[in-house]
Amino acid sequence: MTAERPAHAPADHPRIPREKVGVLIANLGTPDDTSYWPMRRYLNEFLSDKRVIDYPAWKWQPILQGIVLSTRPFKSGAAYRTIWNEEANESPLMTITKQQVSKLGARMHERYGDAVMVDYCMRYGNPSTPSVVRRMVAAGCTRILFCPLYPQYAGATTATANDQFFRALMQEKRQPASRTLPPYFDDPAYIEALAASVERAYAAADREPDILVCSYHGLPFRYLTEGDPYHCQCQKTTRLLKERLGWSDDRITTTFQSKFGPEEWLKPYTVEEVARLAENGRKRIAVIAPAFSADCIETLEEINEEIRESFEHAGGESFTYVPCLNDDEAHIAALTGRIEANLAGWLD
């Protein structure tokens, strides 16, 4: 039985699920479909998040609800259609997240049996964080480890995911004890998994790339000056990857992609830097996205299409995209290690 009446309780006492620990994997999110209204709902939730765009609402919301959401859903929908998993009718991010959770769940079950429940949620879109927290509490989770799959911490990624998790807890009558997974940008197992993926890509290339571009999602530059550690953590990930590969400084570089809006963002911008590399004689490059735990619109469409086009238009000859770690066994092992370390004290 999964639920039972407490000892010494009266006969009319409701049955209570056996206690277990929840591991809740969280990623950014995905639209439910590529058509206009699902895209608009998704973009509205995403771009209304004050962690993502922190302009005053009186200034930003008229722009968002006007020109942005009137036009951007069409453009974004078209981009999603180029990568959409038609067989499963879902985005690659959703497909890969399910695969990751399946493998993580198997590892947790192998070690802890039925004492651990592994599930996933999205910060934007479905399944929503509150709905999955509710499901876990109803299943008997009296402790939940919340795991945003962002190796490097940023207010616009890790913090907003945590915010939503805490808001979900506020809705629970019996609130579970909770922990959040810290960033793992310098975890040796994560760095090893990245390095192994680079080595595989280089071994499969016809000719070795001249340079590896580590392209991270961008943020407004002022976030750095306001105390966000993201930029520094990205730089350290690149440095540790370089040291693990045994490379010199000129074989690897750090850039930032996905600039949005008029203000200055973290530089150099990937789309401009790959063109500069081509113009300066680096005709063969590889690009990896260490800030993304799963391939998504920013990697499969932006890097592998827009950024590739910028490089080739500037005279580049060979462009190698190194896929995200996704459900690679080394990645799953690294995540398992981080999760188990953060379950210490809750489980033997």
Rank of each mutant, 00 (worst) to 15 (best):
P14L: 08
R15C: 09
R18G: 14
L24E: 01
A26N: 14
L28H: 11
T34V: 12
T34N: 05
W37M: 13
E45N: 12
F46C: 06
L47C: 08
V52T: 06
D54M: 07
P62D: 06
L64Q: 14
G66P: 01
V68C: 07
V68T: 04
L69G: 05
L69E: 04
S70R: 08
T71I: 09
K75R: 06
A78D: 07
R81L: 11
N85C: 10
E90T: 13
E90M: 15
P92M: 14
L93Q: 03
T97F: 10
K98W: 07
Q99E: 13
H109R: 15
Y120I: 02
C121A: 14
P127W: 01
A139I: 01
I144H: 11
L149N: 03
Q152W: 02
A156H: 13
T158Y: 14
F166Q: 12
R167T: 12
L169N: 05
E172Q: 12
T180E: 13
P183H: 08
D186E: 11
D187F: 02
E192Y: 12
A195I: 01
A203K: 08
D210C: 04
H217W: 04
H217R: 04
L219C: 09
R222Q: 11
Y223M: 15
P229Q: 09
P229L: 10
Q233H: 05
T238Q: 08
T238W: 01
E243W: 01
S248K: 14
S248M: 10
D249C: 09
S258R: 00
P262S: 06
E263I: 15
L266H: 02
Y269M: 12
A278V: 02
E279N: 03
E279F: 01
G281P: 02
R282N: 06
P290E: 00
A291F: 01
F292W: 10
F292N: 06
S293C: 07
A294M: 15
A294R: 09
D295V: 02
E302F: 07
E302D: 15
E309C: 05
S310P: 14
S310Q: 15
G316D: 00
E317S: 05
T320E: 14
V322C: 03
C324D: 02
C324I: 00
L325W: 05
D328V: 15
D328F: 14
E329P: 12
A330W: 07
H331A: 13
N342R: 03
W346G: 04
